[in-house]
Amino acid sequence: MRRTWLLPALALAAGVLTTPTAQATGGHTVRFATFNASLNRGTAGQLVTDLSTPDNAQARKVAEVIQRNRPDVLLINEFDYAPQAVDLFRRNYLEHGQNGARPVDYPYAFIAPSNTGVPTGFDLDRDGSTTTGNDAHGFGLFEGQYGLLVLSRYPIDTRGARTFQHFLWKDMPNAMLPDDPATAAPKDWYSPEILDVLRLSSKSHWDLPVRIGRDTVHFLVSHPTPPTFDGAEDRNGTRNNDEIRFWADYTTPARGRYIYDDKGRRGGLSPSADFVIAGDNNSDPLDGDSVPGAIDRLLHAPRVVETHPGSQGGVLAARTQGGANATHRGNPYFDTADFADTAPGNLRVDYVLPSRGLWPLRGAVYWPTDALARLNDASDHHLVWEDVLVSRR
């Protein structure tokens, strides 16, 4: 049996599926992963078309990467919001072994609308038009482009799920709103009329409770906007900073009181709740174009445990490509995205971060250097995983 949950119109079907472990008590080792798989397409409906047959070359590579890493709970960034595509990807790709890799089955899936391509009606980039992708709540050529998908071997408690697609940027206390460089006034790139509608999340932020035996782990996922493709006002950089900050506030006791979800429920995560934060945050601790310290706010949040997955592939790529990589301060062992030798070079932007109370065991960035290096062009990002021990305390 396979379950895919959509928003709006969530429903928890009756019955219980067997979890991946038979033990109802004791610890479970669970592999959480994030993968910006670049399964976005240039036109609405194209992803469904591409996945309708089992022979799309890029989708086969993405599926093989997943099969060779076998995460239990997986966030896929840049999967267009196309609910029909979820089953097509599972049935035509993941459940068929790719090039000798074993098939993988995900009985549970969660997909929901994205802010990408949703028009605001305003000229956000001041180019004289209100109808381009830059004028949407999140950049997109159509609604749902570059969306999110979560696949899981464990049940997702959809009744307890929270989404934050509609949270307004201005409602974050001390939001880092962009300045108009032509004026002396602070935070004035956007008019009050724009701020009354402009959402914080460029895609969405989701809190998905995953039931692992008798435990629950909240899978907190998002994909903040790249801090580039703007001007001196840095509207994307400042937004990237605050999208990252959202999870830091949400998971810090008393700091998330201002937050409200799409159903109107207020407040952050319970201080006793276990969580794993995952996603392409588009922010490197030392290099790249994000606001200085943007990702550090999350990495150093009180309840977050920073993990350091890495790969020799990242080291080899930086050495071979040179260019901007040669000037980086960060260790290329931790890079997760291959942006080649031109600016900004390869960066660490994809993260899997468990909470205190969970035990990170080991992790890696999947950047092979052997014969499987043929999979490295499946996406410009690499799958990042972390094995976490979930144990009742």
Rank of each mutant, 00 (worst) to 15 (best):
A278M: 08
S129D: 14
A63M: 12
V150R: 00
D387G: 06
L298M: 10
F275G: 04
R153G: 10
T252R: 05
R374G: 11
T307N: 09
D207I: 11
P54V: 03
P192H: 01
D249S: 06
R319S: 12
E306Y: 04
P209N: 08
P54F: 06
A378I: 10
L17P: 12
D380P: 02
D262T: 03
P292V: 09
H166M: 10
D125R: 07
F167L: 09
N77G: 12
R257V: 07
D215R: 10
L10G: 09
P54N: 11
L88T: 04
T225K: 03
R239N: 07
A37Y: 02
R126I: 04
G363V: 09
R3N: 13
V390G: 06
N282S: 11
P113S: 04
R70A: 15
S311C: 02
Y260V: 15
A373C: 09
D289M: 04
A14Y: 07
V16R: 14
R348D: 02
N56V: 08
E243F: 00
E143W: 02
N236W: 00
S191I: 07
V197W: 01
L141V: 10
E243R: 00
P173K: 03
L88R: 05
V210W: 10
P173C: 03
H223T: 06
A112W: 01
A22M: 09
R70D: 14
D55K: 13
Q46D: 15
A136V: 03
G26V: 04
N236R: 10
F79A: 05
G213E: 05
K187T: 03
P8M: 00
Q312P: 05
T216R: 11
A337W: 02
L383G: 12
N36M: 01
N281S: 11
S52A: 14
A301H: 06
W206P: 11
